[in-house]
């Protein structure tokens, strides 16, 4: 059922997109081409002409974008604009949704992401994901973080596993809070702690890229600030793509910002440029709060 509800919500999102599209036919002509700086020289993730369809409904229209090493790219836009859908393409989480088709070229370090021979298991180990709602497994804190290394067989000894768990919790800034209760269930933590636990869980398998799908939308401002700090620290080691609803957050954590509108990528630029001097009128309308 949960697959179905998710499917349904994705559908409604796409349907909303279409509805909005009817209202703003005038705009759609203008967003044929992405303005700004979507491409960079050394790209970690390279996407070209990506189209995503849910059944008959097209949710993403020909999006091209590069994400470089050790940078944080924020994706913003009104709800239903396809930013989450786009993010979920990068580690093929869209595969779990029935009727979802992805076209276009997507590559990680030059290796294709989609393709008949590509194995999603090692791919997802390289491109980790943090979800909107904290989703710790109903297991102990230790087991939550150890889950990834265990299934992938990353640790050869128990001591190694302990070390990975401790390291990951350290990096997620959670170690000091939970070191005395590693065997307590992860679901007993506060919302912010749960989300950091999920980040620790994601980095325990040493990914190269971390995708974050509105990681703070379910959290209070203090927990949000904590996560934002963490994202800034993580940038040293990982490439991060973050979808966010909050423009302030995008401004705080990212180096580059991509603005999505009704399944089109309207503008990509340095974060500062986007928020101070947007090139596209739609972007400007959005950041000045005329809709969204």
């Amino acid at each position: 059922m949960s697959t179905m509800t998710l499917d349904a919500s994705a559908r409604t999102e796409a349907a909303q997109a279409e509805l909005l599209g009817v209202e703003s036919v005038a705009h759609s002509a203008e967003v044929r081409k992405t303005v700004g700086r979507p491409f960079i020289e050394i790209a970690k993730l390279r996407m070209r002409d990506v189209n995503v369809c849910y059944g008959e409904i097209q949710a993403i229209h020909s999006v091209s974008l590069d994400i470089g090493c050790n940078e944080v790219v924020a994706m913003i836009g009104p709800s239903g604009c396809g930013k989450s859908t786009f993010l979920r393409c990068l580690n093929r989480m869209n595969d779990t949704i029935e009727g979802c088709r992805v076209e276009g070229e997507l590559s990680l370090d030059g290796e294709p992401i989609y393709g008949p021979k590509v194995d999603v298991v090692p791919l997802r180990a390289r491109v980790g994901m943090v979800f909107q709602k904290p989703n710790p497994f109903p297991k102990s804190i230790y087991e939550n973080v150890a889950y990834g290394p265990k299934i992938h067989g990353i640790a050869s000894r128990r001591a190694e596993l302990d070390e990975i768990v401790e390291n990951s919790l350290h990096r997620a800034g959670l170690w000091n809070e939970v070191k005395d209760r590693l065997n307590k269930p992860g679901t007993g933590l506060s919302g912010g702690q749960q989300q950091r636990l999920c980040i620790a869980r994601a980095i325990a398998v040493s990914p190269e890229v971390i995708l974050m799908d509105e990681p703070c939308s379910a959290l209070d401002p203090i927990a949000t600030a904590r996560i934002e700090e963490l994202i800034d620290e993580l940038r040293a080691n990982y490439t991060i793509a973050i979808v966010t609803h909050s423009m302030q957050q995008a401004a705080r954590v990212s180096q580059r910002t991509a603005y999505f509108h009704l399944g089109h990528l309207v503008e990509v630029n340095d974060t500062e440029t986007v928020f101070t001097n947007p090139e596209h009128e739609l972007t400007e309308a959005y950041i000045t709060g005329r809709f969204g």
């Binding site: 997802r124 180990a125 980790g128 994601a202």
Partner: peptide, 17 residues
């Protein structure tokens, strides 16, 4: 089916089969 999809997503997102 009562197990939330988010748990499955969490596991799949880590690269579980």
């Amino acid at each position: 089916n009562a197990v939330p999809q988010s748990l499955r997503d969490g596991a799949l997102g880590l690269g579980s089969t």
